[in-house]
């Protein structure tokens, strides 16, 4: 398998790395330390590895790293960190939309994209927006409530 040198901009930081042709974006990101991108099904089913690729939500397990050459990648930590949380993250905390936390990085990514595209989502819009993210702990109800509340927070202008 051929090796490629690729350039990524991950959460605003330039990264140059050598990848094998069959290395997925998920495995490459984790290898250079972005372990907040979670590895589970590696088949595009669970959404735990969701990242933004040039602003579009993708499952990092479903593309090769070489295909992402030259792209801007945003992980959950590019959306918000402990000291500077995104409204989606704040509301997941407040509403109890996080239990074990393993699916949460992917949920944050999907929910942020949803709100960027649809500032006033209905319950059904949120269900559809998160349809690619499996959560086994919460039963989804509190996640829906958190995304609704985050939408209100963003719209009221007190979010980032």
């Amino acid at each position: 398998m051929s090796a490629y040198k690729i350039n990524l901009c991950v959460n605003g930081k330039d990264e140059t790395l050598d990848v094998q042709g069959d290395e997925t974006l998920l495995r490459a990101l984790r290898r250079i330390g972005y372990v907040e991108v979670k590895l589970s099904c590696e088949g595009g089913d669970c959404g735990a590895c969701a990242v933004l690729l040039d602003g579009v939500a993708v499952n990092a397990c479903l593309m090769f790293a070489a295909q992402a050459d030259g792209s801007e990648i945003t992980t959950v930590r590019g959306i918000g960190t402990e000291d500077d949380l995104h409204p989606v993250q704040e509301q997941l905390i407040e509403k109890g939309g996080v239990q074990c936390g393993f699916c949460t990085p992917g949920i944050v990514v999907s929910a942020k994209v949803l709100l960027d595209e649809n500032p006033e989502p209905t319950r059904e819009d949120i269900q559809r927006g998160l349809a690619g993210n499996l959560c086994r702990c919460t039963g989804y109800k509190k996640i829906f409530e958190a995304v609704s509340a985050a939408a209100r927070q963003v719209n009221e202008g007190d979010g980032s």
Partner: peptide
């Protein structure tokens, strides 16, 4: 009372270290 879990902040920001991390 209703409280967030005490490790919610690290979990929503992707900072929790799971075994594979």
């Amino acid at each position: 009372q209703p409280h967030p879990i005490i490790d919610a902040v690290e979990k929503v920001s992707g900072a929790t270290i799971f075994i594979n991390d």
